[in-house]
Amino acid sequence: MRVNRFTGIVPVQICYLRKIHLLDLSMNHLSGGIPTCLKNFTGMKEWKLIPRQIERRRKVSSGAVEYDIYDFNVFLMWKGRDYVFWNPEVLLSGIDFSSNHLTGAIPKEIGYLLGLVSMNLSRNNLYGEIPSQIGNLIFLEFLDLSRNNFSGNIPSTLPNIDTLGVLDLSSNNLSGRIPRGRHFETFGASNFEGNIDLCGEQLNKSCRGDETAQKPQEPVIDGEEDNKFFYGALYMSLGLGFFAGFWGFLGSMLLWKSGRIAYMRFLNKLIGYSYND
């Protein structure tokens, strides 16, 4: 039922389709909220294999017996592109409500659809927090919640979905740190951009509290400050004394000629006495 001109709300009676596996209402003019009765879709609650089987129907045409051959195929938008799946081995379970005018929050009951492989709710007016129950969808491979008004943190349960290969949370009002763990670091900035208050390595934006706290200064021990002052004054006086004595003596020898000659005679006599001894 995609690409039509349907208006109004999504009727709750649609939840009577318990065995449905693919529900595609994208690209319409639907409004209102997503029904909470989605948990009645028992066909989406488990991951199923399809037996390889081709149905042949017998018909008679102009006196001859002919057979019409029917095979199983699925047409849906997968990971942002339209695909036709011919005789898939796995019964694909997906919900696509994208490109409508839906409002409200994502029902927590979505967490009951454990066999869900694809979910696209992008390009709506949905708001509120992304329910943590989405982390229960262990077979989910494609999740697009972009271009809505979702707020709050990204659920920490999302990195638990090992099969998640495509994720788009861009253009919302999400905040806080992008969760870490498992393969979540492989998603790039384009998957999260457009969320002003979102931070993390993918966006090359540090979060509050990431800055290394400065080490507090250790308290001064009693008397330590006085010792520092004493030793500082002692070393300074020694330096000044050495400078004054050395340069006072050496300077006088260099500038006073008669004193320099008398000093040299004194040294010569001293050396002579030492040799005589």
Rank of each mutant, 00 (worst) to 15 (best):
P35F: 01
A262D: 12
K19G: 04
T7S: 07
S274W: 12
R265D: 14
G135I: 04
T103P: 03
W47R: 08
L140V: 02
S237M: 13
S170T: 04
N125S: 15
M236T: 15
I106D: 03
N100M: 03
V220N: 08
E109D: 05
S98N: 07
K228A: 15
N28L: 01
G200N: 06
F139Y: 15
L158Q: 02
A189H: 13
L22P: 01
G181M: 04
N125W: 05
G33D: 07
F243T: 11
V3S: 12
F72Y: 12
G152Y: 01
E109V: 00
L102R: 00
I20K: 02
E66S: 08
Q13L: 09
K39Q: 11
S118A: 11
M119D: 00
A64V: 13
I130N: 00
G248D: 11
L76N: 01
L38H: 00
L143H: 00
I196M: 14
Y112N: 05
S98F: 00
R58Q: 09
G43K: 02
I271F: 14
V65W: 06
A189V: 08
Y231R: 14
P155I: 04
M27F: 12
S252A: 09
L102G: 03
F242G: 14
D210N: 10
E89R: 10
Q53L: 13
L49F: 10
E185I: 12
P88A: 05
L49K: 11
I95S: 05
G188P: 01
C199S: 05
R260P: 13
Y275W: 10
T186Y: 05
N276T: 15
K45D: 02
N100T: 06
C15S: 00
N153Y: 09
N172E: 01
I178W: 00
I178S: 04
G188N: 06
N276M: 15
G200D: 07
F75C: 10
A233L: 14
N173Y: 04
K228V: 15
N173E: 07
G232C: 10
C15M: 01
P216T: 08
T212P: 14
L30P: 00
L91H: 08
R52G: 09
W86I: 09
N149K: 13
G248Y: 07
G248Q: 09
K79T: 11
S93R: 04
G111T: 03
I50E: 10
E66R: 12
V220F: 12
G111S: 05
N227R: 15
R58T: 06
G194S: 06
N276L: 15
S146Y: 01
L121W: 08
M27L: 07
Y235P: 07
N173H: 10
L270C: 11
E211W: 08
F266L: 12
D277L: 15
V60Y: 06
V84R: 06
N195M: 07
N124D: 05
S258Q: 15
L25Q: 01
I14E: 03
G251M: 01
G33E: 07
G32T: 01
F150N: 00
P179N: 02
H29V: 05
K228S: 14
G111V: 02
G165Y: 03
K269A: 13
I134R: 03
G272V: 15
R56A: 06
V60F: 06
